[in-house]
Design a protein around this nucleic acid. Structure first.
Lengths: 130, 130
DNA sequence: GTCAATGCAAATCCTTTGCATTCGG
DNA sequence: CCGAATGCAAAGGATTTGCATTGAC
């Protein structure tokens, strides 16, 4: 019952690690096809969800009604997510120490990484549009 | 085109303000029926969404695939949300000053209240279950 | 050859929309 | 009355499941 290595799994891991745009399952499936790799939406979801279960990626539920995925990075490359409630874009906030100290203080709530902190608000561009 | 005052709107506002359990639209509709007030799921969504647009409530997208709602409270009663990635329960973190200072520091990202900060992790109970 | 992985179609679930009915002002 | 609000049924859209086929080992 050994896990099998497939083109699809390999592509999804590689693509997510190289991506900083928080893709959805559809984004990943589309990117695969553009690279000539067959990848159905079903398999995209299955592979992405298994990466989350393995702790290699995090889910970012957005106001657009879709779950976006983000590769989990080393502490020094980790970041807080900011989701704009108007345009739905997701920004990375490379963050100060105030959060880190909070994370370690409260043992009741186990937080994997800064990337599991999501702030919903209005981004700079959408503030201007008013 | 005056807005009309209805039993349904009145119930939803009152229920959400009194509730600290972050109900979904289904929870609200069910609670209405238990109190003998007719409230379809469609209207529950419509009323809750209008409360969000009016700035009286916030949406909390959860890992359970549903949007939960929370009444927006005064600053001194505001709080950060913690969503358990295993059981899906939502906890209120009544929070230190470290976050508040961060909120005011960065003008690029406009955050309505502490309640728009959502942290995803594993809650105490689920840590024990392992 | 085995059996895990894939991917299509269908199912499921949350949320929104269309539209006829109800009811507040 | 008027038209906004409700709520049913249906549509829409994201995600999952069933199952026959494919392909890794």
């Amino acid at each position: 019952m050994a896990l099998r290595h497939t083109k699809q799994k390999e592509f999804v891991s590689r693509f997510l690690e190289a991506s900083f745009s928080h893709p959805t399952a559809y984004d990943v499936a589309l990117a695969a096809k553009e690279e000539g790799i067959s990848l159905g939406i079903t398999s995209a979801y299955r592979i992405l969800n298994s990466l989350v279960e393995e702790g290699k990626a995090v889910k970012v539920p957005s106001v657009d009604g879709m779950v976006h995925f983000d590769f989990k990075r080393d502490d020094d490359k980790s970041h807080i997510h900011f989701v704009c409630q108007k345009c739905g874009r997701i920004f990375d906030l490379r963050e100060e120490k105030s959060f880190a100290s909070f994370l370690q203080a409260d043992k009741r709530f186990q937080i994997g990484s800064l990337q599991d902190i999501i702030i919903y608000g209005i981004c700079e561009d959408c503030q201007k549009k008013k």
